[in-house]
Amino acid sequence: MTDPDLDLVYTRLCATMTALGEPQANLFLARFALLAIDRIGDRETALQMVADAADGLPAPEVPRAG
């Protein structure tokens, strides 16, 4: 994938999510993540991506049980 390819996919992701609207953004990203995991097809790579995605995000101030 070239830089312009990445640009294109990035823009399409944002545009698609914008069109769906913010209330559906979580579900959209969850679906995208599942399809990506399936396509990657490698446990270690996928686990590393889960860790990398969480890395640097601040912990919630009040622990939430959900």
Binding site: N26, L27, A30, L34, L35
Partner: peptide, 23 residues
């Protein structure tokens, strides 16, 4: 599902399963 995250991911799985055998 014991948290919002398990709920959300389950909804994603169920919604994709018809057309995506992998999940």
């Amino acid at each position: 599902p014991p948290s919002f995250a398990f709920s959300l991911m389950r909804e994603a799985v169920l919604g994709l399963a018809t057309h995506h055998a992998g999940v």
